[in-house]
C-alpha cells in the first residue's frame, strides 16, 4: 500500500500541480469525492425546507466536494491550503467562493454566520507537525474553536477523516469536544478495509435533540439508503461512538443495546462467515467515557 499522503509532505507541497491534476482526470477520485460529499451533506441534516444555506467546505481542494453542495442549491465558501488545488477549482469554474487559508491557523469568520460545514479527507492533516512551529494540539484547538464560533447555534459540521490510528481519532475527537461540540463518529462500511469511511458528526451549541449522532443504518435490520439495499454486509453503517460534551455526565442511554444484543449480533455475523472476536467476559462491558 502506498504510504499515507500525510506522512510524505506538508499538504501545500503534497497537493502540487500533478496531484491536483488527478482531481480533474481520475474518474475514481472524482467519484469518491462526490460520494463522500453527498454522504457528508446527508449527515449535515439541514432542514428539509428547500432553503439554500451558507455552508463551508474545509479543505475544499479542487472543488469537487463543493460542486455537490452547489448541485443541492447551497451557497458555499471553500478554503484550502494548496494553491495548486484551488487553481483547479478556478479552472472548473466552481460556484463557491475560495480562500487560500490554513485551517490550523483558525477560521476567520464572524460568529454564528455559517449554517453548516463539511470537510472531506482533510482534517487528519492537522495531526502532523510539518513545521517546527506546528503543535498539532494547538492547531486542532484553533481549528475547532474557530469552527465552533463561526457556526450558527444548532448547526452541524460533518468531517470525513482518515485518522492514522486510534490515537489520532481520539486527538481529533477530543479537540472537537473541548471546543464545545457534541456528537460522535459515524462509520460507513465498517467491515471493509477499502470502503470503510469515518465521519465526525458535530453539533454546535448546547446539547439538544439535534446533537444525537445520526442513527446507524443497517443496525436494526433497516435498509440502507436506496443504492445500498443489496444486503451486502459491507453496506452497513454503525455508530462506533456516541459521546456528549465533556464534564457533563452522560445520561443512561435507554436504547443501549446491552450484552445480549451484542452476543446475538456477533452470532449473526459469524453465521454469515465474518471473522468476529470470540466472546469473553469483556464483551460489551461498560466502558468508561473518556471525557
Amino acid at each position: 500500500m502506498a504510504a499515507r499522503p500525510e506522512l510524505q509532505a506538508p499538504p501545500e507541497i503534497f497537493y502540487d500541480q500533478s496531484e491536483a491534476r488527478k482531481y480533474t482526470s481520475s474518474s475514481r477520485i472524482i467519484d469518491i469525492q462526490a460520494k463522500l460529499s453527498e454522504r457528508a451533506l446527508e449527515l449535515l441534516a439541514l432542514p428539509d425546507d428547500g432553503v439554500p444555506r451558507l455552508l463551508l467546505d474545509i479543505g475544499c481542494g479542487s472543488g469537487l466536494s463543493g460542486e455537490t453542495l452547489s448541485e443541492n442549491g447551497h451557497q458555499w465558501i471553500g478554503l484550502d491550503i494548496s494553491e495548486a488545488m484551488l487553481d483547479v477549482a478556478v479552472e472548473r469554474e466552481v460556484e463557491g467562493d475560495l480562500l487560500l487559508a490554513d485551517m490550523g491557523q483558525g477560521l476567520g469568520f464572524r460568529a454564528g454566520v455559517i449554517d453548516g460545514a463539511i470537510s472531506i479527507s482533510a482534517v487528519q492533516w492537522l495531526c502532523n507537525a510539518d513545521k517546527s512551529s506546528h503543535e498539532p494540539r494547538l492547531r486542532l484547538k484553533a481549528f475547532f474553536g474557530s469552527l465552533y464560533r463561526s457556526l450558527a447555534r444548532g448547526a452541524r459540521a460533518v468531517l470525513q477523516v482518515y485518522p492514522q490510528n486510534v490515537a489520532q481519532r481520539e486527538l481529533i475527537l477530543g479537540s472537537a469536544m473541548r471546543a464545545g461540540f457534541a456528537g460522535g463518529v459515524v462509520v460507513d462500511y465498517p467491515h471493509s478495509s477499502k470502503s470503510r469511511k469515518e465521519y465526525l458528526v458535530l453539533t454546535c451549541g448546547p446539547p439538544s435533540l439535534n446533537a444525537a449522532v445520526p442513527n446507524a443504518k443497517g443496525e436494526d435490520g433497516m435498509s440502507c439508503s436506496e443504492d445500498d439495499s443489496s444486503g451486502d454486509e459491507e453496506n452497513q453503517t454503525v455508530t462506533i461512538s456516541d459521546r456528549n460534551r465533556p464534564r457533563k455526565k452522560r445520561k443512561l442511554d435507554k436504547k443501549s443495546k446491552g450484552k445480549d444484543w451484542v452476543l446475538r449480533k456477533k452470532e449473526q455475523l459469524r453465521r454469515k462467515g465474518s471473522s468476529v472476536p470470540a466472546d469473553t467476559k469483556y464483551t460489551a462491558r461498560k466502558r468508561k467515557s473518556r471525557f
Binding site: L54, D97, G108, R110
Partner: peptide, 21 residues
C-alpha cells in the same frame, strides 16, 4: 470573492480585537 464572503470574513491576526470589516 463575492460580497457574501467579504461580509462574513474577518482578520484573525494575533492581537487584533476587531478584524471586521
Amino acid at each position: 470573492m463575492r460580497l457574501l464572503t467579504h461580509n462574513m470574513l474577518s482578520s484573525t491576526i494575533k492581537g487584533v480585537s476587531n478584524g471586521f470589516p
